[in-house]
Computed example of a mutant assay.
Amino acid sequence: MSSYNLAYCTPENIPAEILNYDNPLEQLAVGQSGKLGILHLCLEYNPSSHKTSIKHQYYKVPLCIKRALYLEETFPEMAYVYIISPSGGVLQGDRYRIDITLTNSAKSHVTTQSATRIYRMNKNFGSQIINLNVDKDCYLEYIPDQIIPFRDSRFYQVSNIKVHDEATCIYSEMLSPGRVASNESFEYDICYMKVKSVNQDDKLRLLDVAKIEPKAENIRSFGIFNNYEILGSVYILTPKDKINIIQNEILEILSGTKEAIGGCTKLPGENGLLIRLLGSFVYDIRNIIYSIVRIVRKNILNVSFSKMRKI
């Protein structure tokens, strides 16, 4: 579609720290075929099949999806959707945009097929826009695998999450230090992740920024990563009457784990929760995130959550 051009896939108000790397490419220019990844996905509950189904989809490689799967025996109406990138990762000059909308009481779990790899860059940066729109009585779990920034990579991600006051969305991020097996740990230039959430009336619910520049700051200092390697963030937007019990159960999980440290705080207005995690291994942070999903799903939907299966 002609309207899906470079401007459509480029974040607004890119911070100066990222624009410092906005140099022209000598190879395939920004905005050319293969540099713009687009995914549009609309899900809704289908009363005839008693399942959440894909009402509309459009994608442009290097982003794509396959058909929805129904993996949860205890909740067969939930649609599991896997986001796939055939290119294997984000290259310099890549601009990705993901738009996901849930309507008509849809229930879905969206994840990535594997980790998001941010390849080495010397001229430009990579970016990704994630727009989530969760309508009344809908439920979304957006739980991607970890981001792996390679040496000298630059990545900017902005996530806009619109959630109705009578809906629920769990959104998570995991950031690894790099290709540890290749002795690359905190050797990327910058990883800048911004999360903003509003309700159905565009009233602000949260604004959170994580900007990590390993070459410009002491990542190992107290108050940043200290001796840990993995950063995890979980954002829970859900009706106020469920906040206290969910927070208490999450705090119980965090206090009982030795593999990571973390905290869980209420958002302004008590309309959600923010959980920040630090650990040494991806699987430790992933398991805690799955435990959080399990808690939320039990309290909101009264169903269980099985460990994820990747295809």
Rank of each mutant, 00 (worst) to 15 (best):
P15W: 03
P15M: 07
P15C: 08
P15R: 01
P15V: 05
A16R: 09
E17H: 10
L19V: 11
N20H: 08
Y21D: 04
D22H: 13
D22E: 11
D22M: 13
N23D: 11
P24C: 13
P24R: 11
E26M: 14
L28C: 08
L28A: 10
A29V: 11
V30H: 05
G31V: 06
S33C: 06
G34R: 09
L36P: 00
G37H: 04
L39I: 12
L39S: 05
H40I: 10
C42K: 13
C42Q: 15
E44Q: 15
Y45L: 06
N46K: 09
N46W: 02
P47I: 13
S49V: 11
H50Q: 15
K51A: 00
T52K: 06
I54R: 03
I54F: 03
K55R: 14
K55L: 02
K55N: 02
Q57G: 03
V61M: 10
V61A: 15
P62M: 01
C64I: 09
I65Y: 00
R67W: 07
R67E: 12
A68C: 08
L69Q: 03
Y70D: 00
Y70R: 03
E72G: 07
E73M: 13
E73W: 08
T74N: 15
F75A: 13
P76T: 02
E77S: 15
E77T: 08
V81P: 02
Y82N: 05
Y82C: 11
Y82P: 00
I83S: 00
I84C: 11
I84S: 11
S85T: 07
S85F: 09
P86A: 14
G89M: 06
L91T: 04
Q92L: 08
Q92D: 05
D94H: 06
I98R: 03
I100W: 00
T103V: 11
S105K: 10
S105C: 14
A106R: 01
